[in-house]
Nucleic acid binder design. Structure first.
Length: 386
DNA sequence: TACACGTGGGA
DNA sequence: TTCCCAAGTGT
């Protein structure tokens, strides 16, 4: 189906040619005067553009900037990325979240070395074939780095377009994206496609925002149907989200006589895949139903149950401090961890079902810990007042 | 198609 | 507190 047919099917009335050209001029003129000075806008190196786009996925600009600068300084070429160790990469990514992004980037870098002689491909099909690059990122890199007229439809672009054209599609649905892409194919400036895409995103990030949107301040308000019709509060259409699920873990911070701490490796799939945490025992795995609530934390048989489970799961005989050290909570996008932290010492080491390792605090700086682990570490180093 | 996948910030 | 948001992709 052609772009115009897709638009017609969804009752999106495309502008006449002269209006499209006027829109391009207005938008790009505003961008030229108001664009944000960002590190990845000072380069046309496709590798750097790519790094920035991966980091910016679901992540705010201010958060990304220091990570981006450190990353390209440490790994200045695709070859460096392809050869970097996973530990190096995770350390560079520590605290950014969505850690599969950087693992996928290494896979893609190896793809580029093997299939494209280490040169970032220009053909959109080849770009899309790279691990971790989907329709948005492929469009962003090819338009920004190579000046190709490809759409880069993210949340900003869908919000801006929904308001300009009073689009009724739910922007939360995966199927909606291709309709917005069809629209951008018709609107995009063939001479400055990368700037056009970035202008739309800047507009969405600074003026046409989710909250505090005042359309009269927009440089393209005359093109905005929802402004003209005073319907902007309706757009974009977005269904409400689901509630997060709660999980409670008894978290054991175990030390040995060398001062090392015991960590377990998360499974290779799922939340924080392959990352290190303190020992986490699911409250649902405890034999007594009453431990699933937050009460009874001083009961001595709880400590005994935890010590027995630690022996089963991690192979270590431990002696726990009966006093609850404290609680840590961490909210993910779709779930919440409540960690009940106990300290203890190892009596006898052994091998259990789960992969574990001893790490000395002097080595903490060279290992990537996810934020929940950092929060527990912080709790352990706080001075107890009584 | 819908859901899993991190984290921090703002209302 | 609670909710939503922020330059999405893989499965």
């Amino acid at each position: 189906m052609s772009h115009k047919n897709i638009l017609a099917k969804h009752n999106i009335q495309l502008w006449p040619k002269d209006k499209i050209e006027a829109f391009r001029k207005r938008l790009l003129n505003w961008y030229d005067q108001n664009k944000r000075d960002l590190p990845w806008r000072r380069t046309s190196n496709p590798y750097y553009i790519w790094v920035s786009e991966i980091m910016l996925q679901q992540t705010q600009v201010d958060t990304v900037i220091p990570y981006y600068n450190r990353f390209i300084k440490t790994l200045p070429t695709i070859h460096d990325l392809a050869q970097a160790s996973e530990e190096t990469l995770l350390k560079l990514w520590e605290g950014l979240g969505y850690y599969s992004r950087v693992r996928n980037m290494k896979t893609a870098a190896i793809q580029i070395v093997e299939k494209h002689e280490g040169v970032f491909p220009r053909d959109k099909k080849d770009v899309l074939a790279l691990k971790g690059i989907g329709p948005y990122t492929a469009g962003a890199v090819t338009s920004i780095a190579f000046n190709q007229a490809e759409p880069a439809v993210d949340g900003n672009v869908m919000r801006v377009m929904s308001r300009l054209f009073e689009i009724e599609l739910d922007i939360g649905k995966a199927s909606s994206r291709k309709v917005f892409e069809a629209l951008i194919y018709e609107l995009i400036d063939p001479d400055r496609p990368g700037d056009f895409n970035q202008a739309l995103m800047d507009l969405g990030a600074t003026i046409c925002t989710p909250n505090n949107y005042f359309p009269e301040t927009s440089p393209v308000k005359e093109f905005n149907a929802s402004y003209i019709n005073e319907t902007w509060e309706r757009y974009p259409i977005k269904k409400s989200t689901k509630k997060v699920k709660n999980f409670t873990y008894y978290t054991l911070a175990i030390k040995n006589e060398r001062g090392e701490h015991l960590f377990e490796k998360r499974p290779s799939k799922g939340v924080l895949a392959g990352m290190w945490t303190y020992l986490m025992i699911d409250a649902d795995d405890l034999p007594n139903e009453k431990w699933k609530s937050f009460e009874n934390q001083s009961d001595e048989s709880l400590i005994e149950d935890l010590e027995n489970l630690a022996l089963e799961m991690y192979g270590v005989k431990i002696k726990l401090n009966k006093q609850l050290k404290g609680q840590v909570s961490h909210i993910f996008s779709h779930l919440k961890w409540n960690l009940l932290v106990y300290e203890g010492d190892v009596v006898t080491e052994g091998v259990g079902i789960k992969e574990t390792t001893w790490i000395h605090p002097e080595s903490f700086d060279s290992i990537a810990f996810p934020v929940p682990t950092q929060k527990v570490r912080k709790l352990l180093t706080e001075i107890t007042l009584f």
